[in-house]
Every structure is written in structure tokens, then in C-alpha cells.
Amino acid sequence: MMDDLTQYPLTLEGADAPMVSFRNVTKRYGSLTVLEGLDLDVAEGEMIAIIGPSGSGKTTVLRMLMLERIQEGVIYVDGKPITHQAKNGKLVPASDRYLRRAREPIGMCFQHFNLFPHMTALQNCMEGPVQVLGMSRRDARERAEDLLEMVGMIDKKDQHPSRLSGGQQQRVAIARALAMRPKVMLFDEVTSALDPEVIGEVTNVIKKLVTEHNLTMLMVTHQMGFARDISDRVCFFYGGRIEEQGKPAELFDNPQRERTQQFLSAVKSAD
């Protein structure tokens, strides 16, 4: 069935327009439907925690914003569609070039950091601003050093990733993403690959972002305590849909749906 694109607006406007908006989004890999008819609005400055069992589609939510194409629906970021582009007053699937531009306001951090191993921490943070934003090396260096300072990695700025611990690499990765001055930040299980004793150094940086910056954030996490602490809203995914969502205190203390209750008690007993 073809998706009727005329039902979607060309842009989202107005003071209360969401920063990120999923409209009826479906994502399939071959015949496997990972997400079906997802509707989700994220307000500017809002921090959303995405939780759920593996295979629930929670990581796919982030990947659709940054890395992959979708089969149905439209995703808007900062008022503009990123999956489609307007042509003669109609939405058509986005070209690669448009897609790249449209994704510029989005930054992403990964479970396995994905720093560039042949570059130092500083070079990692300068690469995007110099090559993509066309900044001068001097300005890019200044910005990168400020950010490395903020994540507490300025002392290690000339080290290659292979010389850094997981927690240190993840902090550099956060600085690298922030160097692009994103409006939306995506965190994909950023503490899952870390040793327990260094998780705190990464979560502290993210907390700092929440309190000091007006960033819109989507965070997939397995750390329920952290999600509860810092998010404005928690979305519980199950079977490719949002099963339940709400304020962290409500969802964690008083889950309404049976699957949410099962999931939370399973997580609790694992802790």
C-alpha cells in the first residue's frame, strides 16, 4: 500500500512546533517490520528516555533519524522534513544530498563510541566542523578545546583513541558530536559497553548537558535509574510500538500496562 504523502504538512511551524516529530513512521528490514505507525513528538529542550526489551525497535528510533531510510510516514526535525523534501509543493522521498543537509542539526553518540582511530581526540572533534561546516582550523580548534574541557578530556586531547579508556572515549565522542552544534542529540546505549566504574563519568557529562544546555535529546538506555533521574519523559517500546509513555516517576512507580510492569520487574530483579 502506497503511503499518501499529501496527508503530511510540508513544514511544521509555530512556537509550539515539536523539535522532532515522527508521523506514522514504519520501518521494515525486508519482510520484518521493526516499527509500525510510530507517532512521537519531542519538544525543544525535552529529554526523552527510550526503554524496552531488545528487539522492541528502540534503537531503530534513533537510527531512522541519523542512519537509515524509512518505508512509510515522515520525520520532521526543527520544522523541516528530513525523510522527504518538498518539490513543487509536494513531499517526495529525500535525495542523498538533501538527507545529509537535513540531518546536520542532529548529533549522535554510539554504544561503541566509533571515534576515528587514526586521529587524536582533538582531531576527532575538529573533523566535522572543518570538513562539513567549513570552519577555519583555528576556530574549530578553539571550539573543540572548549568542548574537551567541558567533558574533562582536555588533558588527553593529543591522544589517539587506542590510548583512552572506554569512558574517556565516550566523553570525546560526546564532544565530537557537540562540536557540530546540534539541536538534537541522540544517545544510543552510550554506557552499555563501559565498565561499571566509569559509567558515572559519562552519565555526569550527559547530566551537565541536560542542566546547562537547551538540547533536545533522545536516549536509548538500559540504566533505569539514570533514565529516571534525568529524563522528562520515558517511552517504553514493545513489539515496534510505544506501549506506554509518561513522566519517569509515573511510569517507573506506577506502570499501567502489563508488559511495562513485567519489563520493569524483570529489570529490577536483574539488578
Partner: peptide, 21 residues
């Protein structure tokens, strides 16, 4: 590693920069 391609995409790098840099 596949993650390197994803990191390049997350910085909106062009195909050319992705390959050569």
C-alpha cells in the same frame, strides 16, 4: 568497522570525505 561509516554519517560527512579522510 561499520561504526566508522555511521560516525561519518552522524557528522553529515560527504561520501568523498568519508572515503578519503
Amino acid at each position: 568497522a561499520k561504526g566508522q561509516w555511521e560516525a561519518c554519517a552522524s557528522l553529515s560527512m560527504s561520501t568523498r570525505d568519508t572515503y578519503f579522510r
